[in-house]
């Protein structure tokens, strides 16, 4: 992993110019019902504009699925 890489949904992705969660979601075209988890911590939607993303972060987008 280079110094500007993050783990995004299990894959290594270049952070590029994204500085916040909101930037990253836009860049990755994430839509629908989902939440953001960074390094095992849920980032509330109210913090997406301000919460920074940093090289080396493990970022997961979690969505609803069927369950029993």
């Amino acid at each position: 992993m280079t110094s500007n890489q993050i783990q995004f949904n299990g894959e290594s992705v270049a952070l590029e110019s994204a500085k916040t969660v909101a930037d990253l979601l836009e860049k990755q075209s994430v839509t629908g019902r989902f939440i953001v988890v960074i390094n095992d911590e849920v980032v509330p939607k109210s913090n997406w504009q301000a919460h920074p993303v940093n090289a080396g972060d493990n970022i997961e987008i979690m969505s609803p699925i069927s369950g029993g």
């Binding site: 995004f8 949904n9 299990g10 894959e11 990755q28 075209s29 994430v30 839509t31 629908g32 019902r33 989902f34 997961e60 987008i61 979690m62 969505s63 609803p64 699925i65 069927s66 369950g67």
Partner: peptide, 17 residues
């Protein structure tokens, strides 16, 4: 219901459900 991580190439997989 349950939840799972989106796959890398499927950015809106939970929306229909």
């Amino acid at each position: 219901v349950s939840l799972r991580r989106q796959s890398a190439n499927q950015s809106n997989s939970g929306e229909q459900f």
